[in-house]
């Protein structure tokens, strides 16, 4: 629809200067509605299930969401820069397997983590380089590398599980830090870092510009392909961290395991309000998206819904949430 406003309409001007303006804009953002929807969802479960409103339960939710949540955070950065990365699930598997092998070889947790993270960044850069050099859409490239990385994980392990039994390593996935499950601490730390990167660095701003209009970004002197490559590297890095947490928690690495997180992570990012076309999105939104998905799983669990039914309902609820969001946006 093309309206022709004779006078341009801006958002209502909030009183005060920069800081207050920011608060004003946050209040007007769709995220406020998402938060309200989340509270509603939580209220329903709180009434329906006895043990929902307990600290332990919320820690459970955190623990259950950390793996796909960590991946979703990096994915948010890539998507803002206009690169939909669908290969991250395969990167999780590959990095988890490599970490497990280092553990099995007796190299210790630190070496295992270092190898996994380095490889994660490397695979992300491979995505970025292919996108930049071949000038192809990131979705196509990562659809391809999804097969390549994922296939390699199966080929390398021959489909067999790789055990990773090391106490220090296991603590990454099962331990607690300051009374909070370590995976949750890791997720929140990454969220903070990435939120700061997006909001307070020139690189973060360039991600938004490149995602919004790559051609215009190029014309103002931004090397769009490299910004995208860097964003994909960040997505690779968080996928690697997610892979490490996943394997550390399970104590064993399996090819194909990371790929299962595809829907959860992408859904968290999209529910969080990041545009699939790039150019807009916030880490806070993705955190809310993660919380929504985690709470749905958890609430259904508490209500005694079987895991099969959960699979069925998950898709329905995700679609329903997106439809509701659309309808509200249309009314606004």
């Amino acid at each position: 629809m093309t309206a022709e406003p004779s006078t341009p309409i801006g958002r209502p001007e909030p009183a005060g200067g920069g800081g207050l303006a920011l608060i004003g804009r946050l209040a007007a953002a769709p995220l406020a509605r998402l938060a309200a929807a989340y509270l509603l969802l939580a209220a329903v479960f709180a009434i329906a299930a006895d043990h929902f409103l307990t600290t332990d339960n919320f820690l459970n939710i955190g623990r259950a969401t950390a793996v796909f949540g960590i991946a979703a955070l990096g994915l948010t950065v890539a998507l803002i820069a206009g690169a939909l990365d669908v290969s991250f699930g395969a990167v999780m598997s590959v990095c988890g397997i490599l970490a497990a092998e280092r553990i099995a070889a007796g190299d210790g947790a630190a070496a295992a983590v270092a190898v996994a993270l380095a490889v994660g960044v490397g695979l992300g850069l491979v995505n970025g380089l292919l996108t930049a050099v071949l000038r192809l859409d990131a979705l196509i490239v990562t659809l391809g590398t999804f097969s390549i990385f994922g296939g390699w994980a199966f080929l390398h392990t021959n489909g067999a599980p790789t055990p990773a039994s090391d106490d220090a390593f296991a603590r990454i996935g099962r331990g607690e830090t300051l009374g909070i499950p370590t995976p949750v601490v890791i997720m929140i730390a990454i969220a903070l870092v990435l939120a700061v990167v997006l909001r307070w660095t020139g690189f973060g701003q360039r991600c938004y510009l490149v995602g919004d209009n790559p051609r215009a970004a190029t014309l103002v002197g931004i090397r769009a392909a490299w910004v995208r490559a860097a964003a994909l590297a960040i997505s690779g890095l968080t996928a690697a961290i997610a892979g490490v947490v996943m394997v550390a928690n399970a104590g064993v690495a399996n090819a194909g395991e990371g790929e299962r997180q595809l829907l959860n992570a992408i859904a968290a990012v999209v529910i969080g309000g990041t545009a699939l076309a790039g150019g807009s999105g916030l880490i806070v939104g993705t955190l809310l998206g993660i919380a929504v998905l985690g709470t749905i799983d958890n609430g259904l669990n508490l209500l005694g819904v079987s895991s099969t039914w959960q699979d069925v309902l998950k898709g329905v609820i995700v679609v329903f949430a997106l439809v509701l969001d659309r309808i509200r946006r249309r009314d606004a």
Partner: peptide, 19 residues
């Protein structure tokens, strides 16, 4: 298609070349 960052604010559009 070449000049604007359509999802951005006026500020972001003006500041784009001087980040």
């Amino acid at each position: 298609s070449e000049g604007l960052f359509p999802q951005g604010t006026v500020g972001r559009n003006i500041g784009a070349a001087t980040l």
